[in-house]
Design a binder for these strands. Structure first.
Length: 198
DNA sequence: TGCGGGATTTACT
DNA sequence: GTAAATCCCGCAG
């Protein structure tokens, strides 16, 4: 039996495009316990996420439509949207299409911890390496150059190591916003020490 | 370990 | 001009 050549997928466990092309309120909890693969072998388990829902979400950058900054949010799903805020910080999202995205808020460091410590010399413990959206970007070396990266085969990828999402993820209001503050669109792994805020 | 205030650029009013 | 999907420093306990 001749066997067909393997499809041109970068790694067998990298999440497919269809994973991202759904409502971000479904994608956000499903991303819990997935693995963010960065450069130089740095990697961490996603333990905290937030959904930003575009035109129906006053807290989303895309709420008022497309701009130069948020253009990646209006591109295809499964890409990294990286934005600059507070004059000094980068934050990273997975795009879900139509101006929606999931903010990656915290990782549990898995591999490349020595490089993460070099990238974040002020961290007082390994728990502070990736416990916040700007912290994880520093730890993995993510900045504006990574805006638009394809999460299926780019410098940053998201993969499944077989660990399922929590059966009952913790849910609550999003952090650091002033509009649509009441919407419970933040999810995290209950009891995980690397969540930015319990 | 936890709190209060400052930092510092970009986008929008 | 001001708020922003935040973090770091200094100090208290």
């Amino acid at each position: 039996m001749p066997r067909r050549a393997a499809p041109p997928i970068a790694e067998p466990d990298v999440l497919p495009r269809t994973f991202y092309g759904r409502d971000p309120r479904e994608v956000a909890p499903d991303l819990l316990n997935k693995i963010l693969l960065g450069p130089d072998g740095r990697a961490g388990r996603i333990v905290e996420t937030e959904a930003y829902c575009g035109a129906i979400d006053a807290a989303a950058h895309s709420f008022r439509g497309r701009t130069a900054r948020n253009a990646t949010m209006f591109g295809p799903p499964g890409h990294l949207y990286v934005y600059f805020t507070y004059g000094m910080h980068w934050c990273a999202n997975a795009t879900c299409g139509d101006g929606t995205a999931v903010l990656l808020r915290a990782l549990e460091p898995l591999r490349g911890l020595e490089r993460m410590r070099l990238a974040r010399p002020r961290a007082r413990s390994d728990r502070e390496l990736c416990s916040g959206p700007a912290r994880l970007c520093q730890a993995l070396g993510i900045d504006g150059a990574d805006d638009g990266v394809d999460l299926l085969d780019g410098r940053l990828r998201i993969a499944d190591d077989g660990t399922p999402p929590p059966r009952e993820p913790a849910v609550g209001p999003r952090v650091g916003i002033t509009r649509a503050v009441e919407l419970p669109w933040r999810w995290y792994v209950p009891g995980n020490a690397h969540v930015s805020r319990p």
